[in-house]
Nucleic acid binder design. Structure first.
Lengths: 338, 338
DNA sequence: AGCAGCATTGCAACCGGTTGCAAGAAATCT
DNA sequence: AGATTTCTTGCAACCGGTTGCAATGCTGCT
């Protein structure tokens, strides 16, 4: 069938070990044998079988990439970056889609059977307990886009959702909105809870600003639209902080469908800065998650754990940034003191 | 480190073969040994190492999933469905991102090293030659979303782009548009070429309809928008068939930004029916690709090749469907004869 | 009881590699 | 040149499983 070590060894007239060594970084082979072997390998089109070697080396270079966010446009970027960065480092992503089941046990079993070197859990909606199952199995794990906690039990890298809530609130206040709303995702998602907490941290300190909060049933267009339509039936706030960009677009759609306009009638600020947010016909003001850095950092962490499995759990936070576009009214002109 | 066959064998007081056999479908083991082994395995938390067994069985249950479409929202659905369907059949997707390089050689090498059982190339922009590299290496391969040809050299499943072009043309004609345009993706993409061919097949037969064609530099929002802005500077057609939904949304954005409206001033019909197309604030009339069926069929094909590697190459076509939404003017009322 | 026939089991070889070890070859030193 | 050190190399065992084969145990039959 396929060309093996033995075939190359025979053709080159050397032992199997010699062939193995020519293909092993830093092993002791003379230039003469190396050349013979390389010639034979080239002739035969030999490539070492990564799986067979993993048996003795204990390294597969496979990284489990687990996610349940297959409906959020941001995650197309996320997958793109993850797969590219992993590839660039000689690692291969083994993708696990958690859409059906949130049971870590199955995916753990699966990834153990394939002896992945490490696991990246890429999800903002999975609880911090999820990655712990991998940790207990001694599999290096990083929770990417996970919830920040001060003393994490497993590595987590992401943003500070509480701080994002604060940023959103400050942004709305600075623009002079007097009645504002929080439109979150699912009530029990940690990201929703944290973003809301930060939002009310700041709003609560403002006596002249009133705030409401409501929750969409999912981080989806439909849920955002439905929730906003409901809000529009009552007296809506002047501006909303939506817990996510897709939610925001749903809300914007509801606003437009009701014959209103953003930002003139109602302001909206999202979170994520997904690719579509910058599209001119959406033009969403939002809070950008530094996706690129989160991903690079996650991969750094997981690879560093390959060398040092006992590495102490760490939480890495990245700052977010307000991206000014067209769905919030502009800042009032600064008063020139004189 | 991890629990192996030997550990279980020792604890159960049987040979390693006995353990192996209890975990092999259809092997001969007495109920008594099976029970002993299962008990021991449970106690120890044993799971067979899939990679080790692949050495002797020649099956890894790994399927290479290769794509270069990490910027098209449709592909988030595609990845979702592929990963789920593969998982449901006990197969694991090994994802390869071709964004950087279109060189099949590297990915071929990589996937061979991991002895994948089969490969699915999921891309509408890669040439039919690409999958052939895998075929030559005797790796079962299916080109999903690939170009239809009558005597394919490798399995291909997708839609008939020529027919889609025809459908688009007929749809525009039926709505009474007299000047229409084809707004394609990259000039040399096979999908663009075919869609254009079909479109002009039908339009060319109509004497009273005039048609133009132009090409965006990529299947992207920006490219679609840029191209439409350019078209709007001259005298634009009454309606456009855009080679893709993202392109369509870009075009729609350009139309709106120019103070025009769809469908009142200019009609647009897309292709794909990505998730966002149905969003109320986009509401794109488009041609739906039966993504679900294409994917299921692709997996069927690739798995059937595992059993019969010599299976004759086959092209599977799925019919597309016009999805009526709000970016084309309605059909004129049928005349009631009487 | 004796025997044929089938099911179960362990041995040992194998899958495609890696690696510790000792022996032989080459290089360096005195 | 001879002694010593360092490089190379092949042998053989091993990684965690699978599987053909022959030996054994069990069943049912006459």
């Amino acid at each position: 069938m396929s060309v093996t070590l033995k075939d190359v060894a025979k053709r080159a007239g050397v032992s199997r070990s010699a062939v193995s060594r020519t293909f092993t970084e830093g092993a002791s082979v003379s230039t003469k044998t190396r050349e013979k072997v390389e010639k034979a390998a080239d002739d035969l089109g030999y490539r070492p079988n990564a799986l067979a070697s993993s048996l003795t080396t204990g390294r597969t270079k496979l990284i489990g990439l687990i996610s349940n966010n297959f409906h959020n446009p941001l995650f197309l970027q996320v997958f793109d970056l993850f797969t590219r960065s992993l590839q660039d480092r000689g690692l291969r992503p083994l993708l696990v889609n958690l859409s059906n089941e949130t049971d870590p046990v199955n995916s753990l079993r699966l990834l153990r059977q394939y002896s992945v070197d490490g696991v990246i859990v890429a999800s903002s909606t999975l609880p911090p307990e999820f990655p712990l199952a991998f940790q207990r199995a001694r599999i290096p794990v990083v929770h990417s886009f996970g919830k920040f906690v001060h003393s994490p039990r497993a590595h987590v890298v992401g943003i500070d959702n509480i701080e994002c809530g604060r940023m959103a609130a400050r942004t709305l206040i600075a623009r002079g909105y007097k009645s504002v709303g929080f439109l979150g995702g699912p009530k029990n998602a940690t990201s929703t809870i944290d973003r809301r907490t930060g939002f009310f941290d700041v709003i609560g300190a403002q006596t002249e600003v009133t705030a409401t909060s409501s929750f969409a049933t999912a981080y989806s267009f439909d849920a955002g639209r439905a929730e906003m339509l409901a809000l529009l039936k009552e007296k809506p706030a002047e501006a909303y902080f939506c817990g996510d960009d897709v939610l925001s677009v749903g809300a914007l759609s509801a606003i437009q469908e009701s014959g209103l306009r953003a930002p003139d009638d109602i302001g909206v600020i999202g979170l994520n800065d997904m690719d579509m947010a910058r599209w001119q016909n959406i033009n969403l003001t939002t809070i950008r998650q530094p996706v690129h850095q989160i991903i690079d950092s996650s991969i750094d962490l997981v690879t560093s754990m390959l060398d040092d499995p006992q590495r102490h759990p760490e939480a890495r936070l990245f700052a977010c940034e307000i991206i000014e576009r067209g769905t919030l009214r502009p800042l009032p002109k600064a008063k020139i003191s004189g």
